[in-house]
């Protein structure tokens, strides 16, 4: 199994930390992982993306242009990465703030209203965990127990009290992902 994923959105949405939790979860089940961020003069509100690879084999290139899956969290990223999804691959997005929806006919497309769900749960910071939950429902590349272990590993000790809240957010994403287009 190899999953090549791009997560793209605004800085401050938790794009990089979501990728880190996924990578740590992969380590927890003895897989090879890589996490390659876009880095640069970026800041809160600017664009941010990270390529995460989880694989049973040694990972070659950590930098890719074609992805098995794309998680897209703003319009700029939709414009940039929709074309990069492999035919038959998966695109997951939050429709909040999206004006031009994906048009590809040869990929699976899913939506999750993560921003709305996080806000209804009273904490917009768990937005990224809602998205992660939705992604894991479509692509169960890592087991839920390993995600919780991954969270413990990647969060500093003082935030461990927030793990149940993050778990709730992941579950909210799991339950609320909607299939827009599924290939058969």
């Amino acid at each position: 199994m190899t999953e090549e994923l791009i997560i793209a959105g605004f800085g401050g949405q938790g794009v990089l930390s979501m990728g880190k939790i996924l990578a740590y979860s992969g380590i927890m089940q003895n897989q090879e992982v890589s996490w390659m961020p876009s880095y640069g003069p970026e800041m809160r509100g600017g664009t941010a993306n990270v390529t995460v690879i989880v694989s049973d084999e040694r990972i070659s290139s950590p930098i890719l242009t074609i992805f098995d899956s794309a998680i897209i969290l703003n319009q700029q990223s939709m414009d940039k990465f929709e074309a990069g999804v492999r035919p038959g691959g998966t695109l997951l997005y939050d429709p909040n703030g999206i004006t031009r929806h994906p048009k590809r006919k040869d990929i699976n497309i899913y939506q999750v209203e993560a921003a709305r769900l996080a806000s209804e749960m009273g904490n917009t910071k768990i937005f990224n965990m809602v998205v992660l939950g939705a992604y894991l429902k479509i692509k169960p590349v890592v087991k839920m127990e390993n995600v919780i272990l991954g969270l413990k590993k990647s969060l500093p000790e003082r935030y461990h009290k927030l793990i149940p809240l993050n778990e709730d957010a992941i579950n909210a994403g799991l339950k609320n992902v909607i299939a827009v287009q599924e290939l058969h």
Partner: peptide, 10 residues
């Protein structure tokens, strides 16, 4: 280089 410096791996 910037790739190896910035990327995370096991």
């Amino acid at each position: 280089d910037g790739v190896i410096g910035q990327m995370m791996e096991k």
